[in-house]
Simulated assay, not measured.
Amino acid sequence: MCLAIPALLVEKRAHDQALVELGGIRKPISIALVPEANVGDYVIVHVGHAIGLLDPEEAQKTLALFAEMQSRTAEVQP
Rank of each mutant, 00 (worst) to 15 (best):
C2H: 12
L3G: 04
I5P: 02
A7M: 07
L9Q: 07
L9V: 03
V10K: 07
E11N: 12
R13L: 14
A14I: 04
A14Y: 05
H15P: 09
H15E: 14
Q17N: 11
L19D: 08
L22Q: 10
G23I: 04
G23E: 04
G23D: 09
K27Q: 10
P28G: 04
I29R: 01
A32P: 01
A32H: 02
L33C: 14
V34Q: 02
V34I: 05
V34H: 00
E36D: 12
N38H: 13
N38Y: 03
V39G: 03
V39H: 06
D41K: 07
D41M: 12
V43C: 07
V43L: 15
I44N: 15
I44S: 12
H46V: 01
H49T: 13
H49G: 15
A50M: 03
I51D: 06
G52T: 10
G52E: 09
L54E: 09
P56H: 03
P56A: 08
E57Y: 06
E57P: 00
E57C: 10
A59R: 02
K61P: 00
K61S: 12
K61V: 08
T62P: 09
T62G: 10
L63M: 05
L63F: 01
L65E: 15
L65I: 10
M69D: 06
M69L: 12
Q70Y: 11
S71W: 08
T73E: 09
A74T: 11
V76Q: 15
V76D: 14
V76T: 15
V76K: 10
Q77N: 13
